[in-house]
Simulated scan of single mutants.
Amino acid sequence: MHFVEREPVMMAIGGRLLSDAGQGLDVMVIDVAVMDGDWRREVRAEVIERILAALARACGLPEPSPAWWVDFRVIEEGSWAAGGGVLSVLSLLESGVFTEEKAKAIRAGIGA
């Protein structure tokens, strides 16, 4: 996850700059990048909702701010690298990190 705070003059809701709204909102973009896998629409929605709820709890707020945006990106298999090499979700499937059912869903999701 990558958190980026933005000034209210850099974002708008409904065509109105947040700086003009006078609400004193904290503006934030949360960028979630994940390896290819079983990321059906309902799974992505649940992840986004949990992130926003956890962030609200961490900030002591009753609910997420309307000025928080979440961008959920799936990085295609073979397009993720770290430590000088390309990473693959396929190598994780045999590691025992995932249940067999989840591993099957991931394989189906990426066509492996």
Rank of each mutant, 00 (worst) to 15 (best):
residue 57 R to G: 05
residue 56 A to Y: 03
residue 35 M to C: 05
residue 67 A to Q: 07
residue 45 A to Q: 07
residue 71 D to R: 11
residue 76 E to C: 04
residue 58 A to Q: 10
residue 81 A to W: 05
residue 79 S to H: 15
residue 58 A to T: 08
residue 63 E to S: 11
residue 37 G to K: 01
residue 86 V to D: 08
residue 72 F to K: 00
residue 58 A to L: 11
residue 61 L to K: 15
residue 80 W to F: 15
residue 59 C to G: 11
residue 54 A to P: 02
residue 49 E to N: 09
residue 50 R to V: 01
residue 73 R to V: 15
residue 49 E to F: 01
residue 75 I to P: 02
residue 67 A to Y: 03
residue 48 I to F: 03
residue 70 V to F: 01
residue 83 G to F: 07
residue 68 W to S: 05
residue 81 A to L: 09
residue 83 G to Q: 05
residue 37 G to W: 02
residue 82 A to E: 09
residue 77 E to V: 04
residue 55 L to A: 11
residue 36 D to K: 00
residue 69 W to F: 14
residue 40 R to E: 13
residue 63 E to Q: 12
residue 79 S to C: 12
residue 68 W to Q: 03
residue 46 E to N: 13
residue 67 A to S: 12
residue 48 I to E: 08
residue 77 E to R: 10
residue 58 A to N: 09
residue 60 G to A: 13
residue 39 W to E: 04
residue 71 D to L: 10
residue 46 E to T: 14
residue 86 V to Y: 14
residue 74 V to H: 06
residue 44 R to D: 03
residue 59 C to S: 12
residue 39 W to K: 03
residue 52 L to V: 02
residue 62 P to G: 15
residue 55 L to S: 03
residue 41 R to D: 11
residue 52 L to A: 04
residue 51 I to D: 00
residue 41 R to M: 10
residue 61 L to W: 14
residue 42 E to A: 08
residue 64 P to S: 10
residue 78 G to Y: 03
residue 67 A to L: 09
residue 54 A to Q: 07
residue 86 V to S: 13
residue 53 A to Q: 04
residue 34 V to H: 08
residue 50 R to T: 06
residue 50 R to N: 09
residue 75 I to D: 05
residue 82 A to K: 10
residue 73 R to H: 11
residue 55 L to K: 05
residue 50 R to F: 02
residue 71 D to E: 11
residue 81 A to H: 07
residue 83 G to R: 12
residue 87 L to T: 09
residue 80 W to D: 06
residue 67 A to P: 11
residue 67 A to K: 10
residue 68 W to A: 01
residue 58 A to G: 12
residue 81 A to Y: 12
residue 82 A to Q: 15
residue 56 A to K: 01
residue 82 A to W: 14
residue 59 C to L: 14
residue 54 A to W: 02
residue 74 V to G: 07
residue 65 S to Q: 09
residue 75 I to Y: 12
residue 53 A to L: 02
residue 55 L to G: 04
residue 43 V to P: 00
residue 41 R to A: 14
residue 87 L to Q: 10
residue 84 G to W: 04
residue 42 E to R: 08
residue 87 L to Y: 07
residue 37 G to E: 03
residue 45 A to G: 03
residue 61 L to S: 12
residue 68 W to C: 03
residue 35 M to R: 06
residue 86 V to I: 13
residue 38 D to W: 14
residue 36 D to Q: 08
residue 80 W to K: 04
residue 77 E to L: 06
residue 35 M to L: 10
residue 34 V to I: 13
residue 86 V to H: 11
residue 46 E to M: 07
residue 52 L to R: 00
residue 75 I to T: 11
residue 33 A to T: 11
residue 60 G to Q: 07
residue 43 V to E: 03
residue 80 W to A: 06
residue 84 G to R: 05
residue 78 G to N: 07
residue 62 P to A: 15
residue 84 G to H: 08
residue 44 R to E: 05
residue 66 P to G: 08
residue 46 E to H: 03
residue 73 R to Q: 14
residue 64 P to G: 04
residue 59 C to W: 13
residue 40 R to G: 13
residue 50 R to E: 13
residue 40 R to M: 08
residue 45 A to M: 00
residue 70 V to H: 01
residue 58 A to E: 07
residue 42 E to Q: 10
residue 53 A to Y: 00
residue 64 P to T: 00
residue 41 R to F: 08
residue 53 A to C: 02
residue 53 A to N: 00
residue 43 V to F: 00
residue 83 G to H: 08
residue 64 P to D: 02
residue 52 L to W: 00
residue 74 V to Q: 13
residue 39 W to Y: 06
residue 36 D to C: 05
residue 57 R to K: 14
residue 61 L to F: 10
residue 46 E to R: 13
